[in-house]
Amino acid sequence: MSTRDLFTFRNSHFRIGVGITAAILIVTAITGFIVLPFAQPWVQFANVWDAICSAAGVPQRAANVTAPEQTKRLSEVVLTSYTLSRPSQEAIGRGATLAQRCAICHGPTGISRADSPNLAGQYAAVIYKELHDFRSGARTNAVMSPFAVNLTDQEIADLSNYYAYLPRLPAYHPTPQLPKPNIVIYGAPIRGIAPCGACHGSLDNKTGSPWLEGQSEAYMKAQLQAFASGERRNDISQQMRNIARAMTPQEIEQAAAYYASQPPDVVKAVD
């Protein structure tokens, strides 16, 4: 018997091989796509085709279910690692002019004396996201919101590029550097908390996460508490709310004190 005679139903191996394989496939398909979907008493299907589509994973829009009304606005900003990654000199210049109105709180060199965030050398994507969120109302603050509400997209991008461009300077009242607390370096795996340092510097940085070295201790503590209470809710997929809720008050204090005590020049170089 030659190879040519292999793929023919006269060949018993072909018959048996293909037959058994097809039979198993058909039986498992019927079980998986028809029998098992209907075996779930808590799911209702209009007809067999509906059940098959459901089991096949066809994306379905539920017709009768309306999305729950959102009482609070959610952040609509989409960030990638390329967001504002190549600023032009003109954009930075325009940002510098616009930034004069920010200086009263954030400092003329981007270093705050008022427990507001230091913006000098912060990642552009971070400032970009926060300004958008202040403008849309996803994040609110009595002082900040009125400033942001009238900014155009262009102005937000220019401001972000300008502050990212500024050199990172030490805070006004640097404190002695503290050792890394557990929450920053290990997180708390049992409570599902990743290390702060995995996104915010000290270990690694992730897109959209600000570096925190030298920021105001009072500010960071207040933000963690706001995340924990749900007062602040512009974090992507509740990442920070989930973490802050699981943190103990002591861990919040340790993390804030640690980052406030770090000089900003330890932040890993961007680009």
């Binding site: 198993i24 498992t28 998986g32 098959i52 089991a55």
Partner: peptide
Amino acid sequence: PMVGAGFKFIHSAFTAL
């Protein structure tokens, strides 16, 4: 979540084989 339960069942059955 991105794979339908029906396909997961078929794969499960073939894994048994």
